[in-house]
Amino acid sequence: MSDIPQELKYTKSHEWVRVEEDGTLTVGITEHAQGLLGDMVFVELPEVGESYEAEQDCAVVESVKAASDIYCPVEGEVIEVNEELEDAPEQINVNAYHEGWIFRINPSNPDDVDNLMNADDYAALVEAEEH
């Protein structure tokens, strides 16, 4: 069973979301997702200042054998992206929840985050997918 931190929120499409103190949301892909994709070779980051709807594709992570869209967990505007991933995409493999973060958004509606899954629900989802 892979690492699923309790304090984070999750999506069905395997993004994690951290609610920061200032209300912004940091987004990445889960340990489970990076394991499935394998060695990362490239990350296409969203543009800072762009707004996305919930579940709209806004970034792409690419491994040798797959390219996977990253979906915006809730509606909001991108305020920062992890530019270090451009040169070191493997940070997602090394530490998906910290150095491997992908982008940060300012949610249009702070309550939207409550609709995302908690760690237990996500663990159940991963469990179900593995069988």
């Binding site: 070779v41 490239f42 040798v64 054998k65 797959a66 390219a67």
Partner: peptide, 12 residues
């Protein structure tokens, strides 16, 4: 860079 190609990325 095969991940850009049709056999992996299909409709994208």
């Amino acid at each position: 860079l095969q991940a850009r190609e049709q056999h992996i990325r299909r409709s994208k």
